[in-house]
Amino acid sequence: MDRNRWLLPLLLMLFVGLGYAVLSIPEPVEGLPKMLVDNMELGGVSNPVTAVLLNFRGYDTLLEMGVLLVALLGVWSLGGMPDYHESSPGLVLDIMSRQLVPVLIIVAGYLLWVGADAPGGAFQAGALLGAAGVLLLLCGWRIGNKCSGLPLRILIVLGLGMFVMAGTGLLLIEGEFLQYPPPVASELILIIEAAATLSIGTTLAAMFLGSRPGEADK
């Protein structure tokens, strides 16, 4: 009981302090955004967020793909969660998912493509692919034994692998890690984004499943 009495005042003080700190941050002078706008034509894409994610701060995205991979490895290494109860999905969900999954895949492709110069990009497209995968898993679909081994793992590391390969290749050619030469920047970004989309979608769906696919059958 003693601890409780102090909790609320402390949290209120934290709120006031943080609020004051946030409100008193000085307005930024035109620094970073202006630099970005000035260098946009080097970026290869015209959507500033995609340019930042895949080009100017490519390291962030590279490491983030690593985080996703490590999280999935964590989930798998804890493995052995029971599968969901195999309940039949019901007619409506079954038909809906058959209609919806192709649409989701097309929309994901569209978002990936349009991400170069409009809101969209690898993460959104990957999330949609992941949602399609979750829908399939909910309907009782499971990945076949033939594909649950190496092909699935290749798909999962594809994003990180493509990123690292592109980075290393550019390190050898250009002398800088992840420094895209402007003439081919948009093509490189599209390739890396496509790989990242597939990986993100597969990883998210695999996380939803929980256990390592194929293990439950043993």
């Binding site: 809101p119 969209g120 993460f123 959104q124 949602a131």
Partner: peptide, 21 residues
């Protein structure tokens, strides 16, 4: 809008599915 798309797909869709599962 970029974050809105990501949030709609992930925050509302995938996280919800994970939590409910």
């Amino acid at each position: 809008p970029d974050i809105a798309l990501a949030e709609a797909a992930i925050g509302a869709g995938l996280t919800g599915a994970l939590l409910l599962a």
